[in-house]
Design a protein around this nucleic acid. Structure first.
Lengths: 124, 124
DNA sequence: CGTTATGGATTACGCTCGTAATCGTTCAGC
DNA sequence: GCTGAACGATTACGAGCGTAATCCATAACG
């Protein structure tokens, strides 16, 4: 089991772009980030790319002077790590109260409810 | 709607103790923290209490030389704030994939599954 | 009554984060 | 070939965090 580097709040946005599609150039990544949130400053994105490379969440191949970045860690693994820590911290590790919180406080469509029930059925 | 102060990882453990029971003296809080995790250093806990007071997550009444601390923010509100941000960051705000992740990756007892289904039924 | 233990306040310190600007190099266009 | 634009690398910097130790006042014990 590989060690999952700790990915910060803003770094997650970058990772999510690359999990959705990779490899990508910095330029492409910046474009996609700006597409979902215009407040992204290119320099900031570059800094984050550098940090993610340093902490080995991203790798790259050179493509001329530029890099093409790709994830070195799988999304599922990162999601699992951070989900577990969230569960521990906020709900003391108790799964059901956590799920109950969401079910009770967030809107869900009938289809979503059905889908979730199906998953629960499978689990039995 | 009051503003929820940002509560850090370790601060959450302190808050959880006080949400479970308050008001409590620093001594009591430290004892309860140590009970669940022996690695807690009293000085560290004091620092966190101070910080939580400063950021107005906790208040206190004087009781002689000592303080009796109590939460100034409700657990539900904090849970909601941090849950929403977690959902956004890790799952891009998509509720069902998030719930699905937990249902698929964590162990649940038959009773828990049943309880959750009941909540989903209510929601319909 | 004085000394010590205890309580909160203050100070410490290295790390990470968010947010960029600057630097040095190299590719591309003129 | 020369110049400027663009790339990654390096540097910046204040805030917050995790982890304590130290300081100062007072309460409790002897």
């Amino acid at each position: 089991m590989k060690t999952i580097p700790k990915i910060s709040e803003t770094e997650w946005e970058v990772m999510r772009v690359l999990w959705a599609s990779s490899p990508l150039s910095a330029e492409d990544i910046i474009a996609r980030l700006a597409a979902q949130d215009a407040a992204w400053h290119p320099k900031t994105a570059k800094t984050l790319l550098g940090r993610l490379v340093k902490k080995k969440a991203l790798g790259f191949e050179k493509d001329g002077r530029a890099y093409r970045y790709r994830p070195l860690v799988r999304e599922v693994d990162c999601v699992k790590a951070v989900s577990d820590s969230f569960l521990d911290r906020v709900f003391g590790g108790a799964l059901t109260p956590m799920l109950a919180h969401y079910v009770e406080h967030k809107k869900m469509s009938a289809a979503e409810i059905k889908e979730l029930k199906r998953l629960l059925d499978q689990k039995e």
